[in-house]
Design a protein around this nucleic acid. Structure first.
Lengths: 239, 239
DNA sequence: CGGAGCGTTGAATCTAGTCAATTAATGTGG
DNA sequence: CCACATTAATTGACTAGATTCAACGCTCCG
């Protein structure tokens, strides 16, 4: 079921029935990937792009000294490597953080869309641009926000993104990240992340227990984070 | 003259004569912007995208507390806000770092390209994707590289990007950044940047005097940086 | 029962930020 | 061309933030 993809795209613009049918037609058979497996490996030249239908994935790079930096988190409805279509080579690995359901779309099909369906092309392009906007927010958070603010910002972002694909449950959502992985998102050591989380807990803006985040005080959390969802382009307009 | 744009696009794939003519036709009249001026202001909804023909520009965000983070550096041949075409709103400001020559392209013209020229569409899309790849490298550098490595990486990246648009002079290139601006690129304090630069100078991998960078030892610099140009997608192939 | 993975803790050490001045470079008006 | 103002670069001292190392507790699972 490609519903999360549709919800994702429809959060930016209206899709026609024909476009929806087309998308259904080109998305391949669904399959599962276990947590810890790579969905995509760095440096590969895939002839298809991978759509994440359920679960969490992370795009990451590993440096010479073995340290890892996660550059993006992907949730249901995200293409994890749509950029590989024009780029040809994937410049990073993609790891399944939880068990995932995925499906593939051949680059040949994507190319056909660019030849025949300009509107859908622009929406797919847009999808990769939102990705870039998220990258920029992460850069800002890494460079100029406190670690507490950075964590809060990440929670806000994930909450909003998951809500648009209906993967939240009221004020709660699943977050299957280990502290180790989250440290690799923020670019800090595990120990420091742990201590920062503890001091954040005292603010009671959110709780994180048993892989579930619960927002306790959205206004406070947003304030700590300096979060403004504008960069996610969640407004329906002609694109 | 849109030559730098052509050099930029042609570093990824071949352009047909018709495509080159089309690009020339849609790029508006050239004009100048003084260093320190904003090329684009945050939150605006431009009906055109801005092409940088000469000079340096920076995309940046300013936080509540007044600190600034630069999220991208743009050089000749770069569209500074091509993403604003599908995104509609620019999520950051764009500042002229040096005096700049720019020209505009109406979004209407870009839309027409997506309707009639799929190949050029993919190349423009690609341009924004390389942007994203650069963002990811910056995230990695900010999160997991030492400050020395981060600076070295930035120099390597700028050297390669400038060389592809013929803006290098042998081992040298203009870099009109102040230390203050570079600190806002790396996300560190001015004082710390200054001290890191000093210790880097001792390695004699590059020199930076009077707004000019000179690469003294490329291999060494690349090694300090952990730099690999792959992410810039500088290979000519059918896209 | 014994690992294995994950989270937590404390102490020592290094990295980076802040504050506050000083020096150097650049630019402007007279 | 010089005096003065302004911006950019540099420095030192002190504080705060972050890393490393090393250990311990908990829970899940074979």
């Amino acid at each position: 079921m490609i519903e999360p993809l549709l919800l994702n795209l429809e959060s930016h613009d209206v899709l026609s029935t024909a476009e929806i049918e087309l998308l259904r037609a080109i998305v391949g058979r669904e399959r599962s990937v276990a947590a810890g497996e790579d969905l995509v490996s760095e440096g590969s030249r895939p002839n298809h792009s991978t759509l994440l239908l359920d679960g969490f994935a992370a795009r990451y790079k590993v440096l010479e000294d073995g340290t890892r930096q996660i550059t993006a988190l992907q949730v249901a409805g995200d293409f994890v490597d749509l950029h590989a279509f024009p780029l040809k080579v994937v410049d990073h690995g993609v790891l399944a953080i939880s068990n995932c359901r995925i499906a593939s779309v051949d680059h040949q099909e994507l190319k056909a869309i660019t030849e025949t369906n300009p509107h859908l092309t622009r929406l797919l392009w847009l999808d990769t641009l939102v990705d870039g906007a998220v990258h920029r927010e992460w850069i800002v958070a890494m460079g100029r926000r406190s670690k507490k603010a950075h964590i809060a910002h990440l929670i806000c972002e994930l909450y909003v993104r998951l809500r648009t694909v209906r993967r939240t449950n009221g004020p709660s959502f699943q977050l299957p990240l280990t502290q180790n992985a989250m440290a690799d998102v923020l670019g800090v050591s595990l120990v420091h992340l742990n201590k920062t989380l503890q001091s954040l807990r005292k603010e009671k803006a959110f709780a994180w227990e048993g892989r579930v985040i619960t927002i306790l005080d959205w206004d406070k959390l947003q304030k700590i984070a300096g979060f403004d969802a504008g960069y996610l382009s969640l407004s329906i307009e002609a694109r």
